[in-house]
Nucleic acid binder design. Structure first.
Lengths: 219, 219
DNA sequence: GTAACCAGCCGCAAT
DNA sequence: ATTGCGGTTGGTTAC
């Protein structure tokens, strides 16, 4: 990994054209060949970058980074204020929580969080154009197709609508209704769902995770 | 901006739980308060991060970064190999070109790129639930509602379907059909469109931009 | 502030 | 390799 702080101008020519006027910035060169140009804001997002695989040609006054598609990132370097390189060695990698990370796994284990008394019939139930996330059975005898999204927006309602149309052909699943389950459901999605007789529910993700075995902490 | 290369362990407790075992990594602290933990790969994406606004408590052996939602990023520091800080000063900001213009402006100027002989009737034609991107008139006498997406996916077809349903009530626009215009149209979207009598077209963005005035380059 | 939408999205898994 | 899909998506703009 090489860290350079330089006064530079940058031009990206690729899927769009972008230009950065002269200023002092961080140039981050990783072992994978990638280059990112960072300002002192925008959190982790660089102003410009080139993802690997790409190659860099270094000239005295500028670097030209190129990828296979012919996109180029050109860094015109005026002055270098810092230039250090470090070998970071092996990266053991990120361990995300061992249990189910997503909403789907949690809701599959706790369908009663969607509606009291709901029982799971199957996960990823195939419809012909794609799987519906959960298929459940309610105490009132109806089947419930559940579409799970982190953010419940109109496209989630559209997707569920299509699934319901296709599942309507299966008379083993009658009567059938749909529910959109999400951490948050937007007003637009609520309106569209209501107009189609589709239910929605906002799920408390943190509470749901609390029902799982506690997560060992390091500190 | 502060750049630290350290042997460290990292724990994130927030929307999910994640742990990074001990290894040498880059800790990037920006003036906006954000912290990102970078390995020597994954292009510009950090392994872990905390976005602003957030606050950092620094102890001799660890940093604890916290945001308003109570999410924490804890960096246990074993050894520091580099620790430099630089003031980058003012960032003039990114000047994008091409993305701002968007496909819509280009296609409004060149509707013949969607279908030969197509003529623009109006842009952002209101339907009641939102505007359809372009409304055109074809040589065969039909009206064409055009939904423009950079990437043509199923939700674009769904959106256009809803617009067509609403526009069907306007008998000044008969006969009416729909076309999805995108740089790339996914197979799923093609199938769904076909099943609804909706057309689709892939637009060559670069060629279209070539019809516009050339973009001045820096180098 | 919230909601809707776009991104050079990135990155992963299944096909 | 491509497609589909989620992300601690992030970020911008209209409302």
């Amino acid at each position: 990994m090489r860290l350079v702080i330089a006064t530079c101008e940058v031009v990206y020519e690729g899927r769009l054209s972008a230009r950065l006027p002269r200023a002092k910035r961080l140039l981050l060169v990783k072992a994978d060949g990638s280059l990112s140009v960072h300002a002192d804001d925008r959190a982790y997002k660089p102003l410009n970058w080139m993802s690997p695989p790409c190659t860099t040609e270094a000239y005295p006054d500028r670097w030209v980074v190129r990828n296979a598609k012919g996109e180029t990132l050109t860094v015109g370097i005026d002055e270098i204020h810092l230039d250090v390189a470090h070998d970071l060695g092996f990266e053991p990698g990120l361990e995300k929580d061992g249990a189910e990370v997503g909403l789907q796994g949690l809701l599959a284990d706790h369908p009663e969080a969607i509606e009291p008394g709901l029982v799971l019939v199957s996960r990823e139930h195939e419809t012909g154009i794609g799987p519906v996330d959960l298929l459940c059975h309610a105490p009132d005898g109806t089947f419930v197709a559940v579409e799970i999204k982190r953010r419940g927006e109109v496209d989630g309602v559209e997707q569920l609508t299509r699934y319901l149309e296709l599942l309507a052909g299966d008379n083993r699943l009658r009567p059938l209704r749909g529910v959109l389950a999400a951490q948050k459901v937007t007003p637009q999605a609520r309106r569209l769902a209501a107009g189609r007789g589709i239910g929605w529910v906002e799920v408390d993700y943190d509470r749901l995770r609390g029902l799982e075995p506690a997560i060992p902490t390091l500190f």
